[in-house]
Write a protein that binds this DNA or RNA. Sequence first.
RNA 1: GGAGAAGUGGCCGAGUGGUCGAAGGCGUUCGCCUGGAAAGCGGAUAUACGGCAACGUAUCAAGAGUUCGAAUCUCUUCUUCUCCGCCA
Length: 423
Amino acid sequence: MIDAKLLRTELDAVAASLAKRGFELDKAAFIALEEKRKNLQVQTESLQAERNASAKNIGKAKAAGEDIQPLLAAVADLGEKLDAAKAELSQVQTRYQDLIANLPNLPHESVPVGKDEDDNLEVRRWGEQPSFAFEIKDHVDLGEKSGLLDFETAAKLTGARFNLMRGGIARLHRALAQFMLNTQVDEHGYEECNVPLIVNQDSLFGTGQLPKFSEDLFKLHADHEYYLIPTAEVPLTNIARDGILAADQLPVKLTALSACFRSEAGAYGKDTRGMIRQHQFEKVEMVQLVHPATSYAALEEMVGHAETILQKLGLPYRVITLCTGDMGFGASKTYDLEVWIPSQNTYREISSVSNCEDFQARRMQARFRNPETNKPELLHTLNGSGLAVGRCLVAVMENYQQEDGRIKVPEVLKGYMGGLEYV
RNA sequence: GGAGAAGUGGCCGAGUGGUCGAAGGCGUUCGCCUGGAAAGCGGAUAUACGGCAACGUAUCAAGAGUUCGAAUCUCUUCUUCUCCGCCA
């Protein structure tokens, strides 16, 4: 959430900043609503002050044994007036909250201004794209040839955009996940977490998926308003919700391997083939809760943590800075890692690392006690994939494929594969 | 799933419907004391919104209600604890 005070005092600057992301803020409507809210609030509060004062007088008079009937008569209609004022105020406040809750985060000044993914900026490349002396296959053909990646059966079990992995591919997928999680925990100092895959609405509001993006989520139709997590960012970040951390606890670095569930209602027709875009996938997520002064250093660090995985796997990739128009709702700045996919002759997103600054922290009231002021202040939150396991499996299969259709097991995964050299 | 108890500030914990934003303690912090420290003594110490300020308003798990007035009474929901049952 954008700071309401900033919105009031620097409306033009906020609107200009949001315009860079292609978001049009209706300034006139906001000013009108704000004016109305303020008037109603002042009016309501003065009625409440009046009520409190007379209630106090009645109390005193009663204690002194005086006749309170005249006093009661004097405030007879106050309750009704107050109720009416309160009702009107809460209506306006709800509209005001809705408006603010639906505003995306302000982009950081270092983010390139642009309309869509074509305006993203490549930062660096790593690794060499492999050359093959034979006709290469994509991961779908490779998987179906061996029978170890079975989309047809998955469609029977559930429906489109699910997959069934078996045998060596299932093992390779698990090996990748374990390798990633171990690396983030053992080498990069994250605390391993095992999180609920089902969360409530408050958590989804906190990280920004609700109220605006409910159609991307799987909702459970039970008594509770529960949803399947679209990413472990939701439970991990919400650990800090409604809490105040001591300054010496920072930075908090959390990681989790989890299944993720995305409805992606708007994505039909995109990446229909293979396991690039699925309703269910696994991901190792990294989250950091940091002092505001260090969040941009933490962002660079986290990109490095994600890059480590690809480097150890020997997968070529590039790092790009998302432009203002391509960033997610809650991000101030985002780097994407894109891995080389030979069959598509292009780089595809495999990780996204974002600094949300205080945007999520404000929504969830996640704070730390600043020793300089001794006051609770909002944290900065960051999240990033380290990495998406399914897409990484695709990259490994395609980059490590052999002429006979087998997959060579990357060196770092051999220990996880019982020493197996090929799948 | 059944029965009972409970949710109050950073933490613990008191609170007969009225002067309670809330005693007391711990913690934190400032000052005194000291060669320095500990102990001791004195002060400060929730958050948000409005206001230059004085101050006002809201918040005692959440929501609704009763009342001139609710931390306190009623209802609903959530959470925690204890006992019983069931279960991986």
